[in-house]
């Protein structure tokens, strides 16, 4: 068994989710995109040792997932798939930064571990926000919204083509891997010696294909612009949606809610 194909199928599942019909699905994609962007900016703007102040931000993914009727488990799995990147970025923090900044039950916690936790938490928040937008909107509509928001066209076109041919490319890679494994009888992992020409071959095929696609585009009058017919409208509900979340993010950014709650509780018991 190999799982290249399964993964690409999984990405296609995002589009199936985007075909849903909830309040959030019907919202103009630009509203969702802007909200996600504000969310990510707010999360990223915290200092390196922020952990508890970030926790209330979990409310955004939680609300979006429940209102949009998205599967928690599936999204969580997708977040885990990319998590090694975040772990690699943060893993050295505990080694470099050994200054004890906090005591929990007599165990000293160094600044490194806290910043590591902070990186992981931010990673979960931002990646899930991005995934949620795609799962509620569909990748291509996200691209369209990007164009309408003034993101440079070449960039959006690249994204669209990436998404369109991701499936073709994984199919091709899968066929090559299968062809190789059917003729490898020791069933071991792929050796470097076979891996390199395989990747090289895939690249050459891709270049050939790119040439053919470009030809097909030129044949139909391509001149650098990708025209599409879509009408998008901003209604009151979009404005309300963006404003509501923006206010909440601002409040969560300016006030450390867990700290305030904590001090309220200790105050009450005193």
């Amino acid at each position: 068994m190999n799982n290249i194909g399964r993964n690409s199928f999984d990405i296609g599942y995002m589009d199936t989710l985007a075909g849903g019909d909830s309040y959030l699905h019907r919202l103009d994609p630009r509203a969702k995109l802007i909200t996600a962007f504000l969310f990510i900016v707010a999360v990223v703007s915290f200092g390196r040792y922020a952990v508890f102040a970030l926790i209330p931000f979990l409310v955004y993914p939680a609300v979006m997932i429940s209102l949009g009727g998205l599967p928690y488990g599936y999204l969580l799995k997708k977040v885990l798939v990319v998590s090694p990147f975040a772990i690699v970025i943060g893993i050295f923090n505990p080694l470099m930064d050994r200054e004890i900044v906090m005591q929990i039950g007599g165990i000293g916690i160094s600044g490194g571990w806290i910043s590591f936790a902070s990186i992981l938490l931010r990673f979960v928040l931002t990646v899930s926000a991005a995934l949620i937008v795609i799962a509620l909107t569909g990748f291509n509509t996200v691209c369209l919204a990007l164009t309408k928001l003034g993101v440079p066209r070449p960039f959006v076109v690249q994204l669209m083509f990436f998404y369109r041919y991701l499936f073709v490319l994984t199919d091709e890679a899968e066929r090559m891997v299968r062809a190789r494994s059917l003729r490898t009888f020791d069933a071991g992992a792929m050796r470097f010696k076979t891996f390199v020409p395989l990747i090289g071959h895939l690249l050459l095929r891709t270049l050939d294909r790119a040439e053919r696609i470009y030809l097909a585009m030129r044949c139909r009058g391509f001149d650098g612009r990708i025209p599409m017919i879509r009408s998008l409208r901003i209604h009151f509900r979009e404005v309300a949606f963006v404003t509501g979340w923006a206010v909440l993010f601002t409040v969560l950014r300016c006030y450390n809610i867990p700290l305030l709650l904590g001090s309220l509780v200790t105050e009450a018991f005193r």
């Binding site: 083509f161 998404y163 369109r164 391509f222």
Partner: peptide
């Protein structure tokens, strides 16, 4: 190879691509 010819996100967009360019 039809995959080379169909490069747009949906069938509609793909068929509309040429006429829009015209």
């Amino acid at each position: 190879n039809s995959d080379d010819q169909l490069f747009m996100p949906t069938v509609f967009d793909d068929v509309a691509f040429g006429p829009l360019n015209l």
